[in-house]
Design a protein around this nucleic acid. Structure first.
Lengths: 275, 275
DNA sequence: AACACAGTTTCATTATTTGGAACACGATGG
DNA sequence: CCATCGTGTTCCAAATAATGAAACTGTGTT
């Protein structure tokens, strides 16, 4: 019986290719072959061939002048499909708009991706548009409102895995830095029905977050409203809880409705006067 | 009846995996195994294993209830890296903001991805936010302003390939529907320095577009300003050409500067008060 | 000219992928 | 109740593709 804990990698050639992809993405800048070779445990020729193939496929992009690799634009195309079909964002969009308008605060929509928080949409308080740059961004689960809201409603098996994979890095004085502390807070969240982030990730930043659940209790994601301690305290922030919870419920309900129909309800979601 | 699209076919196992990924993305909805099997020329067991592995890797996501596959959220994460590092969007952002403010019209930033137009950013005239949904979206090159602007400045080898890969579907009365017509227009664009789309893609929609070039003449992308015939004509629209061209030049210059430094100029590009 | 270095290619060996066929299993339906 | 069908899943010998040490190329340096 295989009890092997494969770190992440594993599945044959494809797994390795994905690792390489991830590795290139991890450098947040164009990378040279030698750099990759160093941080990789693939032999030279093997890594080389992977890079060739991936570049060939448009999953990576190669700059011949600089001799550097970056993640390829094909990923952007594919991600668009992922975002449209597989994230809550399209469903949640009108709700986020409303919530953002009503509260005037920053609003986040997040989902869980391998024990990390993946932000799939956002409305910003100040800036009018900030777009894409935040969709796709990741963050820690154990010290953010949306992260804890999601963890709290994970079934035990998944929770145990997720909780053990957190880094518990101390971002601020108030960061929860142990599995025990986190679990205690998750219990509290469950009984209260929403999560709070009390400057656990960034000083001065507080937030409330509600999980998005199906009627069957499956956790789909979370939404949050964020404020800064300069302008407000939890008293004020928590007045939004009923509203946020309601929105989360609406999104959950719609998500469920949208997922079921085999016959896609419609298509024209986003018509774009392109040119 | 068949009539399958000939997959670019290719590189070993990884190429096949990419094909599967693309195939899943192509259905713009959750897909069942049987559907994929039908539209694929992989044998059952092979396709099955690919789906397993890709799901495993988070490149696909599987809904056990519905037994359907969709592109996975991991793609969104990776695409974020691609968008940040490999697209012109981060560099162009402030310029697009300015251009959008000044003109009050829809502004697009696009790059070329396998002979297609890939929109990497956009500012909308009317709607305040529309976000992500357009980044990652693709469109035809032969009948859009940005598409033609980019084609015009491709070197002959790449141009020949690109031009032969267009579908030449007639979207409107004015769509250019042959390679010859397109090439003629490209000559015109080159001599004029900018492209126009005269309702070639959508009735009532016109636009002007300028290529983004390096000082060496390498084509990086294009930007456009779009209007509708209801509100304006080319006389008005073309008054923006010098401004658009200037912005394109600025973006080109910055892109060039940004690509060179080996020492990463900086990191904290986009800090996100996340929670 | 010799050297160092980053990137590229070769090729016999080895491990992986392949896919036809058989297997589960729920849903019909006779 | 058993037969049948349509899914999706697993097996395993044969075929294929991945592997990586070492040799090579080309560019820049001493």
């Amino acid at each position: 019986m295989g009890g092997e804990q494969a770190p992440v990698a594993g599945d044959g050639t494809i797994g390795k290719a994905c690792d390489v992809l991830e590795q290139v993405a991890a450098f947040a800048r164009p990378v040279r072959f030698a750099e990759l070779l160093e941080s990789s445990d693939f032999p030279k020729a093997t890594l080389y061939r992977f890079l060739q193939t991936l570049t060939n496929q448009g999953m990576l992009s190669y700059d011949p002048d600089r001799q550097t690799y970056t993640p390829g634009l094909r990923l952007v195309r594919l991600a668009h499909a992922a975002w449209t079909q597989n994230s809550l964002a399209p469903i949640a969009r009108p709700f986020l708009d409303a919530l953002s308008r009503e509260t005037g605060e920053t609003v986040h929509l997040a989902q869980l991706d391998s024990s990390q928080v993946l932000y799939v949409d956002k409305r910003n308080a100040a800036q009018p548009v900030e777009m894409y740059s935040q969709a796709g961004k990741v963050g820690p689960a154990y010290c953010t409102g949306v992260g804890k809201a999601m963890l709290a409603y994970l079934e035990e098996a998944a929770l145990a895995r997720a909780v053990s994979q957190q880094s518990y890095h101390r971002f601020t004085q108030k960061t929860l830095t142990s599995e025990a502390a986190l679990r205690a807070d998750l219990d509290l969240i469950r009984s209260r029905g929403y999560a709070i982030d009390d400057e656990e990730h960034e000083p001065g930043i507080i937030c409330i977050a509600c999980p998005i659940l199906t009627s069957g209790g499956r956790m789909l994601g979370a939404i949050s409203v964020t404020g800064s301690t300069e302008r407000m305290d939890f008293k004020q922030l928590e007045t939004w809880v009923p509203r946020v919870r309601h929105v989360a419920e609406q999104i959950g309900a719609e998500a469920q409705a949208w997922r079921f129909p085999e016959t896609r309800p419609n298509a024209n979601t986003n018509r774009m006067q392109a040119t």
